[in-house]
Design a protein around this nucleic acid. Sequence first.
DNA 1: ATAATTTAGTTGACCAGTCAAATAAAAAGT
DNA 2: ACTTTTTATTTGACTGGTCAACTAAATTAT
Lengths: 159, 159
Amino acid sequence: MSVQPEKTVSIGDQPLQQFLTYRLSRVQSKLNAQASAILQKQAGLTLSRWRILSLVGSLGETRLSELARATEIDKGLLSRNLKGLIADGLITAESDDYDHRVQHLRLSPAGQKLFDETLPKMRRRQAILREPLLPKELEAFRSALEKLETAAEWRGEDL
Amino acid sequence: MSVQPEKTVSIGDQPLQQFLTYRLSRVQSKLNAQASAILQKQAGLTLSRWRILSLVGSLGETRLSELARATEIDKGLLSRNLKGLIADGLITAESDDYDHRVQHLRLSPAGQKLFDETLPKMRRRQAILREPLLPKELEAFRSALEKLETAAEWRGEDL
DNA sequence: ATAATTTAGTTGACCAGTCAAATAAAAAGT
DNA sequence: ACTTTTTATTTGACTGGTCAACTAAATTAT
């Protein structure tokens, strides 16, 4: 009795799995899951919240609109996540005396503490992820990402 | 009057934007948006639906469980998307005579047509995305992805 | 002054994806 | 034969994110 060979998911010559966007999204979603799990365990934060917390931490003092501009994170998403972070006492919001629309955001002491504790862990994670990559691979990877990002601009006009 | 320098979002020496996972997820989400837009316009499909359609197209004949195993796409997601594809007449589902749980999935003529029309466009997109990359960059990129995928397995035990 | 425009931030509706439970049929164990 | 386990698929509840509409305040134009 012969063993069935694994059906290979391919399209003509090019296996589907090698469409680099497929590969990319797979890897991305795994990294995402990993980061989420680590952050949940280590800091009780979701990935978005960590991102925002660390942005506020590194900017020192901001406002929602600045975050939105600097990062392309959706305003709505920012607003909701900030609400949570403020409620949890990790970020403080002080409204501006002159412009009553804006809130000045900064880390609370608790937020700063969490940031200071978590950042090195996340750094270490980055290091571990990079570790297996050869320097030129890393370099190529960065530059490839750069180019892909540009190419992602193309709206597909002439297909 | 001096121009305010752009506030650089950095953490110590390492700018946040260069955390490669950040970069990766940014690029990924742009590519995603691009693919979605193109697919919507060219084929009236969402990205997931296209993925599933193309999987069925390339496997020739499958079932949900096989798709789930082969691709790590969630069963629930598969089920719902398939329902839609079937409703739209792009995929046919024939229930097995012996095992009444399974449905045999294949492309309908309409589905095949759409697949045949869309695949080359998506191929062209892949080509366009790859175009700016030097061969060695592409190679390094692939291998980096490979390594990252492995590294993403790590559960963060010893942080 | 006051109307029109822009900017800041919040909210609601919606969609896609994940997880777990539910159903139903088949296969394996006793 | 009949209980237990496994497999196939569907469904429901929930989460996270996107988009657009909305409110409110500030700025600009007339």
